[in-house]
Design a protein around this nucleic acid. Structure first.
Lengths: 350, 350
DNA sequence: GTTAGCACTCGAAGTTGAAGAGTGCTAATA
DNA sequence: TATTAGCACTCTTCAACTTCGAGTGCTAAC
């Protein structure tokens, strides 16, 4: 199946031209049009023959007899992997827009939300950013504060500067001494621990130790550790979505049926989480059409990158569009955005 | 303009029938159809005359000659205000679904997010819920915690149980004594204060007093009070949106132009905030078509209610659909949902 | 290996005509 | 006087038909 890597020069150029043209027009490309706009030095008939070969290889297809050719997913894949010329320059206006972020102090979520909007405006596609996962971070500080009778607030801060908190209802009141003790004890035990090392076993052993030392209600500790676990698991990690309406600009989604399917996914944060979980932690990846596991996404491409906060927490940033996508620009923009986003958040955190 | 209130019986019944029928079919309603499906005891010709009168009053209109009639915004308004029969019963399955919420302990945002999804599923329209505004709440507890060198965490808890926190970067380090003092001082001063009474003047006077008592860096206090103000202002109050894709089910949005306009509003949280600000604090209100101030919404209706947390914080909960909307069901559902939402959140908070 | 030429295919777009739904008006009716 | 039957007229929708152009594949010649 790796025949394509040996594509001779002219076939390469023709495929490249077809894909470029199709990305611009969203129309099937015919041999005559191609011969006229590009100068291959051969006639349309020859191009026709080449195109027929490319079709046999599965890189092109015809929507129907007597229409021009359209790239297949495989064609796009080959384009992205081999043919495409990468844009190395990042537009000046991007850098300028970024300045704003440094001034803002709206917290991590504000930054991500702003970045979502910006990326979607730059690419003119729908954009998706996940909050940084905390799994790989370690705990910098954790504190339980009593905020009212039978109400505690657990605050957790990681070394990447992410804050998480949770209100805790308990049945019996806790004395402030007791709480102080628990705080000290937990601080000691949890300091600098990696979050993903805190499993059920860990908590059980903690509990045993704590019970030995102090006459603390077992029930109370159970609640605390249970809640701590919940905070840590990224089950309800927020996903930021922007530029949904750009989808409507794409001619391939003029078909309401398709549109519905895709919007149904985007509509629901649960589905988005699902979608993001599917994506392996690559620095930069492109999922083209059928390569997506979720049914409704099989007519879309996703260009995504993983952004890093130091060496720890990571999140995803991605762009969703039709398989006919402006890959060079989008890839370069997403790549850059991931880089910048990591930097900005890291600065806020530290 | 209040002529309509004296609409004679038959005209009322005909208008009601037309609106009902149109809500179901989304088609213009003709006199013959009406005469056949409803039994008014008169012929289609008579109905035709009545319809003509109703059109003169601005309650109906014809999309074109020789089409049936369609209700105008004014017609719907009259329907909602006068003709409509309210559904008083709340469906059993709603009550059942609610049980789930009580078990969840995902915090206020989780509850709202869940409620958003539920309401959109029940009504089959797009749903919108705003976080409770804190303006009218008072402060129950506020505490500044030092989480790292030159990093403070401000935690604020209101009497309606809303927690807000913010990370604070400062230039110089603060001693823990200093902090303790500030905490005590602020606790005293802020306890039970209403949030909307905390204006610039208040902070200035606080500052003066504090400076007298302790040798605290003026700069530090400025930062703290500034940030406190930011926490309080609802500038970036979150809006939860659900069921966007239901819009696609509505035949009136088969026109891509319309659809784009509306989705553009929904796409952007900023716009949604704008939208919600437009809505006065009524217990339950319906904005029909042209009554909406935002251009893109002039083909939509919004049914919304204000939900309460005790007597204090309030938020909005609403449903967006075409002007041809299932008003009776939606109104009753939104009303009920607002009620329930207030209750649930209050319980979590207390 | 390349190309010109040609028959063939298919979709897009425009045209026409018939069917159907609905109206408004008028004159007859209860 | 309010109601109704009847009829001419208007307008949309839909299907059938046509035309046009873009594109292909194949063949034979270069």
């Amino acid at each position: 199946m790796m025949v394509e890597h040996e594509l001779e020069g002219r076939k390469r150029e023709i495929l490249k031209a077809i894909i470029r043209e199709h990305i611009l027009t969203a129309e099937p490309i015919g041999s005559r049009t191609l011969a006229k706009t590009y100068d291959f030095g051969v006639s349309s008939a020859t191009i026709r023959n080449e195109m027929s070969d490319l079709e046999d290889m599965g890189l092109l297809k015809q929507p129907h007899t007597s229409a021009g050719r359209v790239p297949t997913d495989k064609g796009y894949r080959y384009y992205v992997d081999v043919l495409m010329e990468h844009e190395s320059k990042h537009p000046k206006n991007l850098q300028r827009s970024l300045a704003r972020f440094y001034e803002d102090k709206k917290g991590i979520q504000g930054i991500i939300s702003g970045m979502t909007r910006m990326l979607s405006q730059l690419t003119e596609y729908t954009t998706l950013i996940s909050e940084p996962e905390m799994q790989k971070s370690s705990i910098k500080k954790m504190e339980i504060v009593k905020v009212a009778a039978r109400t505690l607030l657990v605050v957790l801060i990681t070394d990447s500067g992410i804050v998480n908190n949770k209100i805790l209802k308990i049945n019996h009141d806790v004395g402030s001494r007791e709480l102080e003790y628990i705080n000290k004890f937990l601080s000691n035990k949890l300091q600098d621990k990696e979050l993903n090392s805190l499993d059920q076993d860990f908590f059980t052993s903690l509990e045993e130790e704590l019970i030995k030392r102090i006459d603390i209600s077992r029930k109370l500790f159970e609640i605390i550790s249970e809640e701590l676990e919940k905070i840590i698991t990224p089950a309800d990690m927020r996903i930021f979505l922007g530029g949904t309406s750009y989808i409507l600009e794409q001619p391939e989604f003029n078909d309401l049926e398709n549109l519905k399917k895709v919007l149904n996914i985007l509509d629901n944060e649960e589905n988005l989480r699902e979608l993001i979980k599917e994506l392996p932690d690559e620095d930069l990846e492109v999922k083209i059409g059928q390569e997506n596991k979720i049914e409704a996404m099989k007519k879309c491409s996703i260009v995504y990158a993983t952004y890093h906060l130091g060496d720890n927490a990571v999140g995803k940033i991605g762009v969703i569009g039709p398989t006919r996508m402006q890959y060079p620009q989008v890839i370069s923009t997403v790549d850059f955005a991931a880089d910048i986003l990591g930097q900005i958040i890291s600065k806020v955190g530290r």
